[in-house]
Design a protein around this nucleic acid. Structure first.
Lengths: 219, 219
DNA sequence: AAATACTTTTAAGTAAGCTTAAATATTAAT
DNA sequence: ATTAATATTTAAGCTTACTTAAAAGTATTT
């Protein structure tokens, strides 16, 4: 299957995990940087290949086969991220950019080699789960966004949900890294801001950031 | 530039290093598995992009720009081979197959990271020289083929010039590996065969193999 | 040197993956 | 419930990278 097709099913898969039933051609088109017409066109073609269900004006839905393909691409993406992060100490933004290209040219054989070499990790450096070779995500995520945390409690960072370079740079500079410990000092309910302590430094984040940083409470 | 273009200039570059002036469209077409017509077509297009000189019925010749592109792709290919060989202990055949895909989706940034990580090696596991970041090959190769070696002398293996899986499997099984030591016992002039000793084992190779295995004499 | 074989080139056509513009349907707003 | 705004679809067209078939040129053989 082509790069265009892999990216298309991947975009649908990712959209489904977030916006739920808003998976219409226009949405996917925007994410892929193509025209709405091109997305509709592609959707029809992929329906013929049994990768998704297509009905005029209805949300796009991946078939089992389509979801499997998406998960296979996601697996390769996240394995590359984990590998590049560990091996070359590259930034979160850089690993994403490189993985975006490499994911389409990686055989299952090589993907398994990478996974083995890393000890079959369950999460990538963003905290995103890595599907196994069968295209399954077996880990359960109970993490909550920073905006939902409670004052006085401590958490570990479990996920940095973004593609944005500036966000990643900010995270790197402030110790906001997968696995790191933080303490929530104060929730500013009117301004939707969160004050937290990390490595004895205090930072205040607004909703833009607290809604894409996920954490697990420490018991 | 597209994968098709990168492979085209790479094929010309490689052909020039071997068959000299036999770099006609038909030749390149055969190596790439496309029709002669497609190769002629592509040659014309690449001439417009100043990647090669094209004159009807004449051999194809890369421009400086075209050669630079070819060397950049070759660099990435050989860096990947060296990296995969070392990191995952993959076979010579496997690393070639994977590198063939990855070479086109590797940024200069990542290529440099890989090179640094390996200590900027000058040769890949086949013994092929790795161009530097500027697209230059500074190493000089004085090696000779096994068929040209002399009885009683010892050599180290410097190059395994092939893309063939079975050849590589044979090499792996018999210790014919880049850098390894061998002793030439006898040259069978009528049968064009070579008898050699490696790790105290004796093997006899015919011309098919001795002409693609290159060695350096030990002084 | 002519005839034959082989290559290269031209021409016409195809599939993938896009584009823009217009038509049609859906959704949101009054 | 209309109207207005927005999204989707259709239609026509483009580029890239191929294909096959025929025409034109080059190389080889006798």
């Amino acid at each position: 299957m082509s790069v265009a097709i892999e990216n298309f099913v991947k975009a649908i898969y990712k959209n489904d995990k977030n916006d739920g039933k808003n998976t219409k051609p226009g949405n996917i088109a925007k994410k892929l940087g193509i025209s709405n017409a091109a997305a509709t066109d592609m959707a029809k073609k992929l329906a013929i290949k049994d990768l998704l269900h297509y009905e005029k004006y209805q949300p796009l839905q991946l078939t089992k086969k389509g979801e499997k393909m998406a998960l296979n691409v996601v697996r390769k993406h996240r394995l590359w991220e984990a590998f590049l992060f560990k091996t070359f100490d590259m930034s979160l933004h850089d690993i994403h950019r490189e993985a975006e290209l490499l994911e389409h040219e990686t055989s299952d054989f090589l993907a398994n080699k990478i996974s083995d070499h890393l000890g079959n990790p369950k999460f990538d450096p963003h905290g995103d789960p890595i599907p196994n070779a069968e295209g399954e995500i077996t880990t359960k995520d109970h993490s909550i966004s920073l905006s939902e945390t409670e004052e006085g409690k401590s958490y570990t960072i479990s996920r940095l949900m973004s593609d944005d370079k500036e966000f990643f740079e900010f995270c790197a500079q402030n110790g906001l890294r997968y696995g790191n410990l933080i303490e929530v000092v104060k929730q500013f309910s009117t301004n939707k801001m969160t004050q937290l302590k990390i490595n004895s430094n205090t930072i205040i984040l607004n909703k833009d950031f607290t809604s894409i940083i996920y954490v697990n409470e420490i018991n």
